[in-house]
Design a protein around this nucleic acid. Sequence first.
DNA 1: TGGAACATGTAAGAGGTTACATGATTGC
DNA 2: GCAATCATGTAACCTCTTACATGTTCCA
Lengths: 180, 180
Amino acid sequence: MKKNNNTKYAILGLLTTECRSGYAIKQMIDQSLNHFWKISYGQIYPTLKQLVEDGLATVQDTSQEGKPDKKEYYLTPKGEEELEIWLQNPIEELPSVKNEMLLKLFFSRHQSNAETISRVKQYRNKLLERYNTYEAIESMITSTSREKPDAGYWLITLDYGKRTTQAAMEWCDVTIEKLK
Amino acid sequence: MKKNNNTKYAILGLLTTECRSGYAIKQMIDQSLNHFWKISYGQIYPTLKQLVEDGLATVQDTSQEGKPDKKEYYLTPKGEEELEIWLQNPIEELPSVKNEMLLKLFFSRHQSNAETISRVKQYRNKLLERYNTYEAIESMITSTSREKPDAGYWLITLDYGKRTTQAAMEWCDVTIEKLK
DNA sequence: TGGAACATGTAAGAGGTTACATGATTGC
DNA sequence: GCAATCATGTAACCTCTTACATGTTCCA
């Protein structure tokens, strides 16, 4: 495993929460880290295997009542240390997005204004959907998981999503007016 | 070339501007599309080759005075058509970011608040740098390239970058206060 | 003569998704 | 019997970056 592999650390980090299996990690990521990190099973299972090979985690087969067997992973002291080192490391670069909407907008002189406006409106709708999802998650956390140790940080990352999404929506409104 | 290859369309689109060579495309992307699209030479040259093979562009060797020879690419009618079809296609998904900062923040209960605050501050500095770059580009455009046909759209994409960056900076300020 | 800018290209490999394959357990 | 959920895994493939290789032209 190479240098910049943050996905490895995402998994390492999730193993410090109640998530102990590949399946649980996937669920957690889809539900809570979705707005700033995504992973597929195609990455999760090989990575977990690798963590064990590298001595950063241990596995353990567990049978459950009413559910199929699963594998439970636990960080080793070495794994905890690696996570901490990674946490301490400064961030080199700001995230870089690929924004299809802005790419199309950049070439919009090849289209009519009406078409461009309609695309911006469509984009705004998706942003609003996303914003509403964030609010739904937020109220779910404040009402049911406030006592969990990560909950506070969870809310802070959601706030980031809300603020930047809102700014993007405002941009949509201003841009639609400009194009009229 | 497969389905979701927006990079192909980025290049196709840039060939409708004054950019006619791989080198010029790279420069344009680094200078103007940098905040929503990035491409390396490793993608540009093979893609240009492919465009010609697919009949979407033609090449032409050109010798210049005072500079090495270059290859100039021109869209064919088929290429223009493909670009327009892509422009008309609705956007399926909102861009998804991988934000290392938020990933680390999510696991910050393993760190002291002072360390976390210092990371958020560091992030804010980078955001401010980026914001200033946007402003610099903006005033460059308004003072020198206002008459170019893409200039208006260029400014609109910059506005998007400025607004979302500013929202992120405000999040930093609020978050630092929360963590104190 | 050597560095900067101009110019083109490729091979290796990182990092990721998708589609597929498999199977347990529960409840309707 | 079958759908939903829980659970693990892999092979093929796509996209993209990095590092390397090569060469021109100008100017200090």
